[in-house]
């Protein structure tokens, strides 16, 4: 589902990745870890084509990221749900509207949007907060809204960047439970985190980034 082959990425003259090669299989839930500044976010950005590789090849759900034309990028992103580290929720829209945005870009009709958004908000236990504005929610609730927005369009791949970064243990467990549920439905999930507690005992594959490459691969 996600294939990196000898990928090299520079930011100006600084090397971020050098000859990185790994594969995430279809339907897998995997982790990427490493210290802050190791390049976890950049790696996710390469997957949803916010950055392009300078060398090597990246294939996501059949799309060759290096060769993707500008006008094709939106269609790749519709297949990739993203849980952003900084949430990227719109403060002037309600929880419902924030989640609905992911469907409105598909020009879905209002009744389908209402049905799907209501269902997904129930799944993340935020059905009662549909008309609340994000700034009136706790960090954990905001994160669940972001997850709801990422999963409502039923993507084939879901990426999460430090999804429990600012959350307590209870909220972190709720969030991880949601990811497992999403993965159980067949969605490939890749979580970038520096928090080793998150993958310990999960039995999932973990890729360790160090010194601009995948230092090792292990099981959490």
């Amino acid at each position: 589902m996600i294939e990196f082959s000898n990928v090299t990425k520079y930011y100006e003259d600084d090397v971020v990745f050098k000859d990185v090669t790994f594969t995430i299989d279809k339907g897998e839930l995997a982790f990427i870890t490493g210290p802050s500044g190791a390049g976890k976010t950049t790696l996710l950005k390469l997957i949803y084509c916010d950055e392009r590789p300078d060398k090597g090849q990246i294939v996501v759900a059949g799309w060759d990221i290096g060769k993707l034309k500008q006008k094709t990028i939106p269609y790749l992103r519709r297949n990739v749900g993203i849980v952003f580290q900084d949430f990227r929720l719109l403060s002037n829209r309600t929880v419902f509207d924030n989640v609905a945005l992911a469907l409105r870009i598909h020009y879905m009709n209002a009744s389908t949007i209402k049905e799907d958004v209501t269902a997904v908000l129930k799944e993340v236990k935020l059905g009662h907060k549909a008309n609340t504005y994000p700034q009136h929610l706790s960090g954990g609730e905001q994160q669940r809204v972001v997850i709801a927005r990422a999963m409502v369009s039923k993507p084939t791949v879901l990426l999460a960047d430090e999804p429990t970064g600012n959350l307590d243990i209870d909220n972190s467990q709720i969030i991880m439970g949601l990811f497992r549920e999403i993965n159980a439905r067949g969605t490939t999930v890749l979580i970038a985190t520096h928090n080793q507690e998150l993958f310990h005992g999960t039995g999932r594959r973990v890729f360790f980034i160090k010194d601009h490459s995948i230092e090792k691969e292990g099981i959490g």
Partner: peptide
């Protein structure tokens, strides 16, 4: 920016 990341077309 959010719309672009969600897959909105130009």
């Amino acid at each position: 920016e959010t719309l672009k990341l969600l897959g909105a077309t130009r």
